[in-house]
Simulated scan of single mutants.
Amino acid sequence: MTDQRIPALASAVSLEGQVALVTGASSGIGQATAAVLAGAGARVVVADVNVDGGEATAQALRDRGDEAIFLACDVADGAQVQAMMEEAVARFGGLDILVNNAGISGGASLLHELDLETWDQVMAVNLRGPFLCAKYALPQLMARGGAIVNVASTYGLVGAPGAPAYCASKGGVVALTRQLAVDYGPRGVRVNAVCPGYVDTDMGGGRARLGPEGQAAAIARRETAAARQPLGRQAHVDEVARVIVFLATGAASFMTGSIVTVDGGCTTTFNHG
């Protein structure tokens, strides 16, 4: 028999009346997540350092009838993050959902060849960013019984070649997710993370800076690697966004501290390539 305290699925997945903030939302997974959140009824704050891309994302949502604003923010800068949260609350009256999606790869390098500036930049965006956003969002989230969804990576669960800073930063996001779930579950806030695998997107625009031959080679490498995993392909950004949004809704009401892989099965098996 259904517990009458648990809302029906249709109402559980609705985000009508809720406010969501997505970092790194000018493109890729963040942009797709903003669109899915808005489609579920949320009013959405699109946040990014990319002003043109962020404005375009918010405008596209408004053009289809959704409520959305863009706020420029470098998530590694505490003053900017605090100001962003204050502006979001001032514009929409509160905050219910935080999606910490902003991230950079830092390029490929062996650790002994990695420069300190790159290490610090990756840590600042990928780990300090979620810390700062959570820090300034949590008072609102506690007041409203909200949710945080952190975007980590399969590279935060397993070692990967040539990615010491990225792996370490995303491993930190996984650990931070679990720790926040412990402290803030009793305070009414659920905290979960998704770990995408190969996704058909260009993180940080690095591929776009390559020439045509370089772009083709980069795409081919990813497609070859993705073909070795059980589902045999890369994910579309919407396939990751839908899991993020599920974790933010009442349909995931008994989930906190969960680390959810959205990876086509790549972490379930050896890569035999």
Results as ranks from 00 to 15, higher is better:
Ala152Ile: 12
Gly205Glu: 01
Asp183Lys: 10
Arg178His: 08
Gly17Ser: 02
Asn271Lys: 03
Gly28Ile: 11
Gly106Ile: 07
Ile6Pro: 04
Phe254Cys: 11
Gly172Asp: 01
Ser258Cys: 15
Phe246Trp: 08
Val19Ala: 14
Val45Glu: 07
Ile219Ala: 15
Ala76Phe: 08
Leu21Ala: 03
Ala152Arg: 10
Ala102Phe: 11
Gly41Asn: 12
Tyr184Asn: 14
Met123Pro: 01
Asp63Cys: 09
Ala193Phe: 10
Leu110Ser: 12
Leu132Trp: 06
Val46Gln: 09
Asp52Met: 14
Cys195Val: 06
Arg228Ser: 14
Gly103Gln: 12
Cys195Glu: 05
Asn271Gly: 08
Glu223Lys: 04
Asp202Trp: 00
Val237Gln: 05
Gln215Glu: 00
Gly257Cys: 00
Phe270Asp: 09
Gly214His: 01
Gln31Asn: 15
Ala163Pro: 02
Val191Pro: 09
Gly53Phe: 00
Ala225Trp: 06
Glu55Gly: 11
Leu231Val: 13
Asn126Phe: 11
Met142Lys: 08
Ala32Tyr: 05
Ala160Arg: 13
Thr267Pro: 08
Ser105Arg: 04
Asp238Glu: 14
Gly265Met: 05
Glu86Met: 14
Thr33Ser: 08
Ala56Val: 07
Ala220Asn: 03
Ala76Pro: 04
Arg242Leu: 11
Ala10Lys: 15
Leu61Trp: 06
Ser109Gly: 08
Leu176Ala: 10
Leu210Pro: 02
Phe131Gly: 02
Ala42Leu: 15
Ala68Trp: 13
Ala56His: 03
Pro186Trp: 09
Pro7His: 01
Ile29Leu: 13
Ala90Gly: 11
Arg128Ile: 08
Ala79Thr: 02
Ile29Pro: 12
Leu61Val: 06
Ser169His: 06
Tyr136Met: 11
Glu87Tyr: 03
Pro196Gln: 10
Gln82Ala: 15
Val81Ser: 02
Leu132Ala: 01
Ala241Phe: 07
Ala83Asp: 06
Ala38Glu: 01
Val122Cys: 10
Asp74Ala: 10
Ser26Gly: 13
Val158His: 13
Gly250Phe: 03
Leu37Met: 13
Glu67Asp: 14
Ser169Asn: 04
Val45Ile: 14
Val158Ser: 09
Val46Tyr: 12
Gly146Lys: 03
Phe131Ile: 11
Ser26Pro: 08
Ile104Pro: 00
Gln140Thr: 10
Gly162His: 13
Leu141Phe: 05
Arg209Ile: 15
Val260Thr: 12
Ala83Ile: 14
Ala248Gln: 12
Leu110Gln: 14
Arg62Asp: 09
Gly106Asn: 03
Arg228Glu: 14
Gly257Thr: 04
Ala60Met: 08
Glu67Thr: 15
Val99Asp: 09
Val262Asp: 00
Arg43His: 15
Gly54Thr: 00
Thr267Trp: 02
Ala34Pro: 08
Leu157Ser: 06
Thr261Asp: 00
Glu87Gly: 01
Ser14Gln: 02
Arg190Phe: 05
Asn271Phe: 10
Leu71Phe: 04
Ala152Trp: 06
